[in-house]
């Protein structure tokens, strides 16, 4: 079920002032599966993503993608290697239309005009249409992002990463606040993408979603990686459950 190691973090730490937001964490993401990153609020999940994507540089540790170190690379270079991410606060391009949001995600590779000519253009539009179809945003394509509903905005952030062609997706609470039917649709999108070769690491609070979608779980608490393994092992561990639900042992 698990393939080659796509991404690896070794002993990474990040402190803010005196706070150890990420404390000596090592973990790997294997190709072709969904890894869930779970943990209580403030556990350091988002900070770990930031350290993985070059958004911030860890104080210590190593980060490798496909066997090459990406430590210290700027955000945009990491993105061009094929690591895409969504944000907890979405960070949509609010005053651009849905179509522009998705289109610009396909156009990172050059400056004034896109290279590759007609064939590349056709390939990019195919990616755009596929992303809009999968997220059911077709009929909203000319609507500005600010005018979308909550669920539509969440789907737009997925459409954007889909269109970007990233092969590793880091999703920061993409399903939070979605109603039942939206998140079923959302899970379908993720499953289809994984089948098509994408690798996903998803931060998610809802353990039902985690259980139904993930192949591995990494459990983070107070900056430390407490456990990593098969969902049934992690989810049935009473000690982890106690931490997760806030019944911390004295």
């Amino acid at each position: 079920m698990t393939g080659e190691i796509l991404f690896q973090a070794d002993n990474i730490s990040k402190t803010f002032g005196g706070l150890k937001a990420v404390d000596n964490v090592s973990f790997a993401l294997r190709a072709g599966i969904i890894t869930a990153l779970v943990g209580p609020n403030g556990a350091g999940k988002t900070t770990l993503f930031n350290a993985m994507t070059g958004h911030l540089v860890p104080d210590r540790g190593a980060v490798t993608f496909l066997g090459e170190s990406i430590l210290g690379l700027p955000h945009w270079k990491v993105a061009r290697l094929g690591i895409g991410r969504t944000f907890q606060d979405l960070k949509l391009f609010s005053h651009m239309t849905v179509l522009e949001n998705v289109t610009t995600a396909t156009e990172s590779g050059s400056w004034l005009w896109q290279t590759g000519g007609r064939a590349a253009q056709v390939e990019r539009s195919a990616r755009i249409e596929r992303a809009l179809d999968a997220t059911q945003l077709q009929r909203r394509r000319d609507t500005r992002a600010v005018d979308l509903s909550y669920a539509e905005r969440k789907f737009l952030s997925i459409a954007r990463i889909m269109a970007s062609g990233a092969r590793l997706w880091l999703l920061d609470e993409p399903a939070s606040g979605l109603d039942r039917s939206s998140y079923d649709r959302f899970l379908t999108v993720l499953r289809n993408e994984v089948r098509a070769g994408v690798t996903i690491c998803i931060i998610e609070h809802n353990l039902d979603i985690v259980q139904s979608i993930s192949d591995r779980i990494a459990f983070l608490d107070q900056g430390r990686l407490l456990a990593e393994g098969e969902p049934k092992t992690i989810l049935s561990d009473p000690a982890l459950a106690a931490i997760y639900f806030g019944e911390r042992a004295p």
Partner: peptide, 20 residues
């Protein structure tokens, strides 16, 4: 695409750089 990138940067620099 240059213009779209500029608008993306205007609306959210972090997201723009996360898209390469």
């Amino acid at each position: 695409s240059f213009g779209r990138s500029l608008k993306a940067i205007r609306d959210d620099e972090t997201a723009a750089s996360a898209l390469g």
